[in-house]
Amino acid sequence: MSTNMLIEAVDVHRSFGTTPALTGASVAVAAGEVVAVMGPSGSGKSTLLHCLAGIYLPDSGEVRFDGSRVDGLNDTARTRLRRTAFGFVFQFGQLVPELTVADNVALPLLLGKVRRKEAYARAEEWLDRLGLSGLGGRRTGELSGGQAQRVAIARALVTRPRVLFADEPTGSLDSLTGEQVMDELMNVVRAEGTAVVLVTHDARVASYADREIMVRDGKALTVGAVGR
C-alpha cells in the first residue's frame, strides 16, 4: 500500500439498487497532484468522485484521506471533512442564485464560523485571483457561464482545501472559455498545492492534468506517469 498518497480508494464497490456503479475501483492521488478521470458515460466516474469525497459510502472497500479511513466516519464527521479539507466544482447549478457573487464565495467561510468581515475580505481576494474583480456585487444569474464557473472555483478554494473535486467543470462552456477557466484553475491550484480530481470527457481538458485514470465498467485503470 502506498503511504504517501493524500487520498485513495482501495477496491471500492458501490451499487445503486441492483445497478453496480463501481466494481473494485482503486485509485490514489498524491498531495498537489492533478489527476484526470476519464471513461465512457455511465462507467462510474462521478460515483468514484463521490466515494473519494465521502459523499457516498462504499458497499465494500476503503477510502482514505491523509492516512485515515473516511468510510468509517459518521455523517457529521464526513460533512466536516468535506467542509474543511475538500472543495467542489460541478458542471452547473452550484451557485445560490438569490445571493451575490461575494455572498456565494464567502458562504463556505461563514458556514465555517469565520467572522463576516474576514470572510468577505477573503472572498474578495479570491475573486481578484480569478480575474473577477469588481463582480462581487452581482447576482450570480447575471454572469456568463465562464464567469459563473470561476466564481464556483473561487468558492471551492476559499477555504483552502487539500483536494478539489471537479466533475466536468468546463462541460457547459465553449472551447476557448473552457480553456481560459482551466488556465485559471490550474494557476491557482498549482500556487496553492491543491490536489485535483478532475472528471472530464474532454481530452483537451484532461491534458492539463499530470496523468489520467480511465474508468471502465466500474473499474479504475491507472495509467500515465505517477507523481510530477
Partner: peptide
C-alpha cells in the same frame, strides 16, 4: 487502442504545456 490512447494523451499534455 488503450496504449494508443495513453500515447495520444501524453502528447496532448506536452502540447498543453507548450501552450502555457
Amino acid at each position: 487502442l488503450d496504449l494508443q490512447r495513453r500515447t495520444h494523451l501524453a502528447r496532448m499534455r506536452e502540447l498543453t504545456e507548450i501552450k502555457r
